[in-house]
Computed example of a mutant assay.
Amino acid sequence: MTMSGPEGVVETLRRSQYDIAVIQQVAPDMKLLRHIRNSRIPTPIMIIARDITPAGVAGVLSIGADDCVPASVDPIELLARLRAIIRRASGHDSLTLHIGRLTVSVDRREAQIDGKPVPLTRREYEIVELLALRKGQALSKEAVLDNLYAGQSEPHGKVIDVMICQIRKKMRNMGIEEPFTTLWGIGYRLNEDAFIPLGARTKDFDQTVRQTARESSIPVTAGIAMAPSGTMDIL
């Protein structure tokens, strides 16, 4: 995307859900980068410049760039660097993402439930990886489309709904009832609670039962009103 001036860059980054901003320049622009960081924009930034020196790289890194590479960088290396920055920004420090029973192997492009591969298509895997990297965040269908089809002709947004539905079916067959939370009018979010190990759920339930039992055994003193014990809301 092409933007006009520092204010245009900041406004676009503030309004949009980008995993990373890649700024291509002839030489690293310290003023632009400083303006972005002074505006408290947390989006990771990679600088790609034609004319760079060790001092220039050190300068942009000290101001707040996450990486700075020459324009001649090999595409395979560039993609690996971009993925690494996004992983670190999302709180993951390895090529394997662990979320309860879900494991996403970024290097092998494979998702597993309890160690068993989920039979996903390439695009379905990319959705799972994207939502796993951005766990805790809701992504709009437009944001998912941008990530899956960046630089290509994008299909209609309904294709994301179809793929989400297919992933749900495949994960339900492996014991995950609701892998995604649908936020109507907003988008989708990974449902981390769905991947809690079964043993951990049983332990939490037992603790709740024991706590309720202890509370229900407290003697009632005259003149003190107590709410009925054992009440449970199921959402």
Score class of each variant (00 low, 15 high):
D74N: 15
E142N: 14
V162F: 11
F195Y: 13
M3I: 07
P6T: 03
I20P: 03
T103K: 05
K141F: 00
L183S: 13
L82S: 03
E126W: 04
V26I: 12
D67T: 04
S72K: 05
S216N: 09
L32Q: 11
H98E: 12
A89K: 05
V118N: 01
I41R: 04
L33N: 12
V22C: 01
A71F: 02
I160Q: 08
E126D: 15
A213E: 13
M174P: 06
D93Y: 14
V209E: 07
R15S: 11
I85Y: 08
S72Y: 02
T2M: 07
I20Q: 03
I127Y: 01
S217H: 06
T231L: 13
L131A: 11
A21I: 03
Y149M: 06
T43R: 04
G100F: 01
G185L: 09
R214G: 05
G91N: 10
I234K: 09
I224P: 07
I36N: 04
S94W: 00
F180Y: 13
I47F: 00
A111P: 01
S90P: 04
Y125C: 13
T2K: 09
L145E: 05
G59H: 10
R88T: 09
T221P: 00
P197C: 07
E178D: 14
L97T: 02
S16Q: 14
L82T: 13
P42N: 08
S90E: 06
I127R: 02
I36S: 08
L130R: 12
Y188C: 10
S217W: 07
E215V: 12
I47T: 06
G157F: 01
P228L: 07
D66K: 03
M3W: 03
M30H: 12
P228C: 09
S140G: 09
D161I: 04
T96R: 08
L130Y: 10
V144M: 13
I176T: 00
R101E: 08
R210D: 13
R108H: 14
A138F: 02
